[in-house]
Design a protein around this nucleic acid. Structure first.
Lengths: 338, 338
DNA sequence: CGAAGAATCGAAATCGGTTTCGACAATGTT
DNA sequence: AACATTGTCGAAACCGATTTCGATTCTTCG
């Protein structure tokens, strides 16, 4: 079922059918109605490949998970912003294509693959350091939006939470509850996000006039639970513990809590914990995790709109920072509502 | 950068370049080498649209989340099998395209969209009842694989866990630990998976000679945590409680536990709980959740290989059932290792 | 040396659309 | 009635690849 068959059935030319499907004005209401009926009956849908070939627009957005392969769909935070992004992009008329990293030995020349699929734009999801192949894509003429990734290209933009504010809200909360000895669990050294949060954290500690003790700052290999567990083990074995800890992700916090439990240390009585992201599982744990909520839905929507603008207007990127909000639950000794 | 430019640079015809890229034999080693060098230098990658148009193969797999929209990426179980599926499909040379449901008023004539994008096959993810539009796709000539969804088409297949075995392992475990009064928390009535598990559960209860009390069988609206919470509330208010409950998903189980906690009922002392799926958060909760593990990675790999076979051989579908395994943690009163 | 056979290459049709531009008819204007 | 304008429509070029088939050159061998 292609456009030619529709044209024959309707007794018109191929061009006329095409015009009808693309809302050209130079076709009479009568023939338009007749053709549309036939399209309706046959369930005809034009080939995206042919359309892309002719128009050089694919209505496809490339989704790239940068960094280590295993982040992908399993990271609760990114998955939620991706979900929101997909929905919003859907109403704007775009579908999503996910690049597999496995096919190519070079494990992802993202620019080549973007032109290969003729994507109209890309969203790059990552909390890791910039890879050179991402940089190439960023610097190309293909519109790109980074999620938690600071893109700098002329046709690029990015969205992220205000990481400095995240940290200062954490310190403020600790401070108001009387905690003075503050620790930190971060991700690997090449994680921009983790570094930003750590930098903001130390700055906030100083501006509140609290003592800064680097021995209470530890790091895991990534943002996942087991890293938090190991980091906490390390801290416990060091012999000196802070009274409160900010973990750069909720999973790190949960891992830390698991380690504490194993050593019969109670949260928040012995040590208070605040996580970051507000992913679903926080609500189911004991104690329920106090955390900083990133507005994931809004991040996704913003990313979608920015990308849409980059594609369709000649607008020049920029960035959006969304405001974090403190979610008080139980892991921090305060007893407010969830 | 297209094939014509490569041809000009190499001083050969377009056809020759195409032949080189597709491993035809009628081209000399010398020119092949020369052309490949140019391709390497320029980073040329052929247009997928043009290629698809000419060959009618897109190397694209359509991913469909059937059922309510909000399942999408947020469901931990499906996300993990999808992750494994994506990886495996990647090494087989395919990329994934996600259909947005939002663009079309009909909210998804999946068959039309599959031909629109010229996908080579589809994977359909769902635990819900079959929708008519899915049925159309299933019955079409497009290869399809269902995940937790029983497809019947000539070019279709499906993968799922052995739901009867899941239930009987649960009952056996309860039985061996001395529980005799067994309850069940399921999803909505139109969920095939939930119904299968419930059917297997009642059958297992009977075959163990245990009493069957339908008052202890309750249902939520979906597989998520809040549904488990509400279902449990309902059960508690009914006045009569079983000694052990099997929940058709881990999130249902976690919701149930939350409700129990609010009524100062202890798990597993007052009531034992077993979940299903073995999603990540099970490990972080208190008590850690005893559950039935579905081998999500294997489900994804199987789905990928079956789909590949359906696409490339004329093989005729079929189904694969993977064996579930009981993961004993803390929510059931037994104290084995995790 | 000449002819048969093999190796190498390119012209052209094709895939399914879009878009420009010219042809023609219908209508309006004086 | 003659002309200009507007409204409808289709022929044909084009997008970037693949693939068939015929043309040409190169080997090989009697």
């Amino acid at each position: 079922m292609n456009i030619k068959m529709i044209a024959e059935m309707a007794g018109v030319s191929v061009s006329t059918v095409s015009k009808i499907m693309n809302n050209y004005s130079d076709v009479s209401e009568k023939t338009k109605k007749r053709v549309l009926e036939i399209i309706e009956q046959t369930g005809y849908s034009p080939s995206n490949s042919a359309k892309t070939l002719a128009t050089k627009k694919s209505n496809l957005i490339g989704v790239i998970f940068a960094g280590e392969l295993n982040v992908e769909f399993t990271h609760p935070f990114f998955v939620e912003v991706l979900n929101s992004f997909k929905k919003q992009m859907g109403v704007l008329g775009y579908d999503l294509i996910f690049f597999s990293n496995e096919k190519f030995i070079s494990s992802g020349d993202y620019f080549a693959r973007s032109v290969h699929f003729n994507v109209d734009g890309c969203v790059i999801i990552s909390g890791q350091k910039m890879e050179p192949t991402i940089r190439d894509l960023d610097m190309s003429s293909i519109p790109c939006i980074g999620v938690d990734l600071e893109l700098k290209g002329k046709k690029s933009g990015f969205v992220m939470s205000d990481n400095f504010q995240i940290s200062s809200k954490v310190v403020e909360h600790f401070y108001l509850l009387g905690y003075r000895e503050l620790g930190f669990i971060g991700s690997a050294a090449d994680s921009e996000i983790s570094n930003l949060r750590e930098a903001g954290y130390t700055k906030a500690i100083e501006s509140f006039g609290l003592p800064l003790n680097r021995r209470w700052f530890v790091h895991g290999d990534d943002f996942f639970e087991s890293s938090g567990y190991e980091a906490m083990q390390q801290l416990i074995q060091s012999g000196s513990l802070p009274k409160a800890i900010f973990a750069a992700s909720d999973l790190l916090a949960l891992g830390a809590i698991r380690a504490l439990k194993e050593h019969d240390l109670r949260v928040p009585e012995d040590i208070a914990i605040i996580g970051c992201d507000d992913i679903e599982p926080c609500k189911y744990t004991t104690p329920r995790l106090t955390t900083i909520r990133q507005n994931k839905e809004r991040l996704g929507i913003l990313a979608a709109h920015m990308l849409y603008d980059l594609i369709n207007n000649q607008s020049g990127g920029g960035s959006f920072v969304v405001e974090p909000v403190l979610i008080v639950r139980e892991s921090c000794g305060s007893q407010l509502k969830s």
